[in-house]
């Protein structure tokens, strides 16, 4: 848990709307009632302590013209390792979990087009012999949580 109020204020402010300005930390420092040097020191400290993992841009596939989907596969126990290795080789597979269900492998897939995903799923089927792979593209996002109040 983060105890001191200065750190909390910084963390609650810097998770979004990072200033687009030659001196972004100066702008943030002014908002937070700190000096630029003080803010830079505090942020460096929190990065060292791994409280802040990174500062940067987070992008959504759809906004960049990419296509994303969730896939669910029914994979026999003795094929799970082969299947996971094969699926994970694809750059666009970002999350992959084994879950307790008849569809036991669930992975997300991002690619420039729906055709490329379909083609990749065919290749995965050919290489692994797993034929039951569901393609479940999202059609509406109701929520994707981004900010966490500390």
């Amino acid at each position: 848990m983060i105890e001191d109020q200065i750190s909390k204020n910084i963390l609650n402010r810097i998770q979004a709307d990072f200033p687009i300005h030659p001196r972004p930390y100066k702008i943030l420092a002014e908002e937070l009632g700190l000096s630029e040097d003080q803010l830079i020191d505090e942020i460096k400290q929190m990065k060292q302590e791994m409280i802040i993992r990174r500062i940067g841009g987070n992008f959504s596939p759809d906004r960049l013209g990419f296509y994303s989907t969730l896939c669910a596969a029914r994979v026999a126990a003795d094929k799970i390792e082969l299947f996971a290795t094969t699926v994970n080789m694809f750059h666009g597979v970002t999350h992959n979990y084994q879950r307790d269900h008849q569809y036991n492998i669930w992975f997300t897939f991002i690619a420039p087009s729906i055709q490329e995903i379909e083609k990749s799923l065919e290749i995965i089927s050919q290489k692994t012999g797993v034929t039951e792979i569901l393609n479940l593209p999202a059609t509406h996002v109701f929520k994707i949580a981004a900010n966490f109040k500390v």
Binding site: L11, Q15, A16, F18, G57, N58, R63, L64, F148
Partner: peptide, 14 residues
Amino acid sequence: NMIRRFGATLKHQK
């Protein structure tokens, strides 16, 4: 509106 979120990502955020 190309950037979904611009800022820090925290460790152990959940």
